[in-house]
Design a protein around this nucleic acid. Structure first.
Length: 272
DNA sequence: GACTCGTGGAA
DNA sequence: TTTCCAAGAGT
């Protein structure tokens, strides 16, 4: 992956982590390349209108991430001299960076020792160590303890371990159709040794996208991304025929800062 | 802890 | 066709 090359730098790692939050690698790749070519440093992005970040985000989904990445670039420029901070707590204080992303940037970009617990690693640990097919819906204290216990002591080794355990989950120990034949720890895997018992308990609740506010928001924002200038409400009205839900979705976008209302019932991506 | 927040490819 | 889900964060 381009964000694993040394020349990607901390900013490249950070951009990739934002984009990879809930979005598959194959869809991130082209947008990542365009993004880094256009905004090679945090200050370059910080100098842009936030709406440009939202526009360049394209169809990656969850566009609030674009807004937060822009906000993080501004904060880095103002508070950290334009350099992505190395300190975990300072990373965590940036908008859009939570427990996982702070550890990922500190580990992948700066080679530090942090437990990196994403959905891939959690699945690997659930199977190899706990003997269950899938991890709990939300990360538990027990999972964090396990991750800390398994993390190698040496800093450089820990950073390599973080990347390796994630790759193992992403490429081999996948959610469906896991490939135990390629797994380096298959002989020690508690789940495999137990005969791969199927996940019990409640199924992870499905999302059901059709007809939700999220779908309406997506349609509204798609129109605004493509528009050059301000868009009249009448144009936005065409994306959804149910007026109450349509208004609620647009209001939500405005209150999230993804859309800026103008005079005369017109709208655009935010300039400030 | 429960919910919200996009999108599209694969099973 | 429907379901599942992909390197989470914020409220």
């Amino acid at each position: 992956m381009p964000w694993r090359r040394p020349e990607a730098g901390a900013w490249g790692v950070m951009v990739s982590e934002f984009m990879l939050q809930q979005t598959p690698v194959s869809r991130v790749l082209p947008v990542y390349e365009q993004w880094l070519a256009r905004w090679p440093r945090p200050a370059d992005l910080a100098a842009e209108a936030p709406g440009e970040a939202v526009r360049a985000w394209g169809r990656l989904g969850y566009p609030r991430r674009a807004l937060r990445l822009h906000g993080a670039a501004v904060a880095i420029t103002e508070r950290h001299g334009g350099d992505v901070p190395r300190d975990h707590a300072q990373l965590l204080a940036l908008p859009g960076i939570g427990e996982y992303t702070a550890a990922a940037v500190a580990s992948f970009a700066y080679g530090q020792r942090h437990p990196v617990l994403d959905t891939n690693v959690r699945r690997v640990f659930a199977r190899a160590a706990s003997g269950i097919q899938y991890p709990p819906n939300a990360t538990t204290a027990a999972e964090r303890r396990l991750a800390r216990a398994l993390l190698p002591d040496d800093e450089a080794t820990a950073a390599r371990w973080a990347a390796a355990s994630m790759e193992l989950g992403a490429l081999v120990c996948t959610a469906r159709n896991e490939d135990c034949g390629r797994c380096p720890v298959a002989r020690q895997c508690a789940w495999r040794l137990a005969g791969k018992p199927a996940h019990d308990g409640p199924a992870r609740r499905g999302q059901t996208y059709a007809g939700t506010d999220r779908q309406v928001r997506g349609k509204l924002l798609a129109v605004l991304r493509e528009a050059v200038g301000p868009v009249p409400r009448a144009v936005l009205d065409r994306v959804w025929d149910e007026p109450v839900q349509r208004a609620r979705a647009l209001d939500g976008l405005v209150s999230d800062g993804l859309v800026e209302p103008l005079e005369n019932d017109r709208f655009r991506l935010p300039l400030t």
